[in-house]
Simulated assay, not measured.
Amino acid sequence: MTDQAASGKATKRTLRAEVLAVRRRLTEDDAQKAAAVLAERALELPELAGAGTVAAYVSVGGEPGTRALLDALHARGTRVLLPVLLPDNDLDWGTYGGEGSLVRVQHARKMALLEPSGSPLGPDAVLEADVVLLPGLAVDGRGMRLGRGGGSYDRVLARLEREGVDPALVVLLYDSEVVAHVPAEAHDRPVRAVVTPAGVRHFG
Rank of each mutant, 00 (worst) to 15 (best):
M1T: 14
M1C: 13
D3C: 10
Q4T: 10
S7F: 04
S7A: 14
S7W: 03
G8N: 14
K9P: 01
A10Q: 13
T11N: 07
K12M: 08
K12A: 06
K12Q: 06
R13E: 13
T14A: 15
T14G: 07
L15R: 08
L15G: 05
E18S: 12
L20G: 06
V22G: 06
V22M: 08
V22F: 14
R23S: 10
R24Q: 15
R25K: 15
L26P: 11
L26H: 12
E28I: 12
D29Y: 09
Q32L: 14
Q32P: 00
Q32T: 12
K33E: 13
A36P: 03
E40F: 15
E40I: 04
E40T: 15
A42P: 07
A42I: 05
L43M: 15
E44Q: 15
P46F: 12
E47R: 07
A49N: 12
A49C: 01
G50M: 05
G50E: 15
A51M: 14
G52R: 07
A55P: 05
V58W: 02
V58F: 01
S59A: 14
S59R: 12
V60P: 02
G61T: 06
G62H: 02
P64G: 08
P64R: 10
T66G: 07
R67F: 11
R67W: 06
D71K: 08
L73V: 08
G77N: 10
T78M: 00
L81R: 04
P83T: 09
V84I: 14
L85R: 10
L86K: 03
D88H: 11
N89Y: 13
L91P: 03
G94Q: 00
Y96V: 02
Y96S: 00
Y96F: 11
G97E: 13
G97V: 00
E99M: 00
G100Y: 08
V105N: 14
Q106N: 15
Q106F: 09
H107C: 14
E115K: 09
E115R: 07
S117A: 09
S117W: 05
G118Q: 12
P120G: 12
D124K: 14
D124L: 15
A125V: 15
A125H: 10
A125D: 13
A125R: 15
V126S: 09
V126C: 06
L127C: 10
A129K: 11
D130P: 05
V132K: 03
L134F: 03
A138P: 03
D140K: 07
G141H: 06
G141Y: 06
R142P: 00
R145S: 04
G149F: 02
G150H: 09
G151S: 09
Y153T: 02
R155A: 02
R155Q: 04
V156D: 01
R162K: 15
E163F: 13
G164H: 07
V165L: 11
V165Q: 13
P167W: 06
A168P: 01
L169H: 05
L169K: 03
L172D: 07
Y174W: 04
V178K: 11
V179N: 07
A180F: 04
H181V: 01
E185L: 13
E185W: 02
H187S: 12
P190I: 02
P190Q: 08
V191E: 02
V191Q: 01
R192Q: 10
A193S: 03
V194G: 04
V194K: 01
V194W: 02
V195R: 04
V195F: 04
T196G: 01
T196E: 01
P197F: 03
P197C: 04
F203D: 01
G204W: 05
